[in-house]
């Protein structure tokens, strides 16, 4: 039995769509160090990342600015050549088999325009049909479907440069999906969007993941994206993966702290209550953080009311953002 298990683990992993093995990316910077002299300095944007993704997973890839998120996505899509390690996406080596891979993946960069700036959306989609050699009927079906789902109809004939950010993003999503990619990579797809537009993007991603079985990997700053979308969360900091698992697991591991927000009648010194600490004061409003295993919200509220007249209060559950912030701080 043990032997069998051992043998199984050495078999080639079938069906993995993304596989990273000790991937590194180093950039050489030349930093001024004197009048003319320049020092070469190595920056490790990605410092030994390994993870695997099964088909049909929806993965959130988060980390603070400069953690190496975008660099990873760029290596996965064949834009950047890794300095070390091995990458396989859809069974291909992204940087060496870039063109082959491009047909099988969709890519959206939230901060870039991939559509043709001067062309109406419809013409951009038409061009993409030729570039990706999508069969006419397949393209037509996708075009009709996404036009309906993302409500592109009203601005199909508008040049891309005149679209609002939200409209453009809907166009970008369509552009990335017209050729039926197996994997969709999105780098900050909701950045700069308003609440409604964000929700629409999330819905769309959830749908293509659920209905078409498209594997989705998205990086984001907005942890609400992750809460709404993905079951698996990869957190990266300083170029390394520091958490790989479900969101529930993350909150259970790190999120034992809740916050009580109290509005006092008038501004006061930070309150002193056993088992809680004030983390923020804004006029008459104070934020008290406490551990759920040490104190109940009711007891804390009562303790606050003893010290100062209370107008209003709310309890904030550990939000994933705080959790992640704490992980960064510890990591």
């Amino acid at each position: 039995m043990a032997r069998l298990a051992h043998r199984r683990s050495t078999l080639p992993k079938r069906g993995l769509v993304i596989e990273l093995d000790g991937v590194e990316k180093t950039f050489t910077l030349r930093v001024k160090s004197g009048r003319v002299r320049r020092e070469r300095r190595e920056v490790r944007a990605v410092d030994g990342i390994s993870f695997r993704v099964d088909p049909g997973e929806l993965i959130g890839y988060v980390g603070p600015n400069g953690a190496g998120k975008s660099t990873t996505v760029k290596m996965l899509t064949g834009i950047l050549v890794p300095s070390a390690g091995r990458i396989s996406v859809a069974g291909l080596d992204p940087s060496r088999q870039r063109i082959k891979l491009a047909r099988r993946i969709g890519v959206v960069f939230g901060q870039r325009v991939q559509l043709w700036w001067d062309l109406p959306l419809r013409d951009s989609f038409e061009l993409l049909r030729h570039i990706y050699r999508v069969p006419e009927n397949r393209w037509r079906a996708n075009f009709d479907r996404f036009t309906e789902v993302l409500e592109l109809g009203p601005f199909l004939e508008t040049p891309v440069r005149q679209l609002s950010l939200g409209q453009r993003m809907r166009g970008e999503l369509t552009a990335a999906m017209l050729h039926d990619p197996e994997i969709l990579f999105l780098d900050e797809p909701t950045i700069g969007l308003d609440v409604v537009a964000k929700a629409r993007v999330r819905e769309f991603l959830a749908e293509v993941n659920r209905d078409q079985g498209v594997t989705v990997l998205l990086t984001t700053h907005d942890l609400a994206d992750i809460e709404r979308l993905s079951s698996r969360l990869l957190i990266i900091d300083h170029g390394r993966v520091i958490h790989d698992g479900t969101i529930e697991r993350l909150i259970a591991d790190y999120g034992e702290e809740r916050t009580l927000v109290v509005d006092l009648q008038e501004p006061a010194e930070p309150l002193e209550v056993d088992g809680a600490r004030v983390v923020r004061v804004e006029g008459p409003r104070q934020w008290l953080r406490f551990r759920r295993d040490e104190l109940t919200a009711a007891r804390l509220a009562a303790a606050v009311a003893e010290r100062a007249p209370l107008v209003d209060l709310t309890v904030e559950e550990p939000d994933i953002e705080d959790v992640v912030r704490r992980i960064y701080a510890e990591g």
């Binding site: 064949g78 491009a102 890519v107 960069f109 870039r112 570039i131 050699r133």
Partner: peptide
Amino acid sequence: EGEFDQILVRPLG
């Protein structure tokens, strides 16, 4: 401006 990124994710030279 990073526009070259988009060139590299399309299936053309």
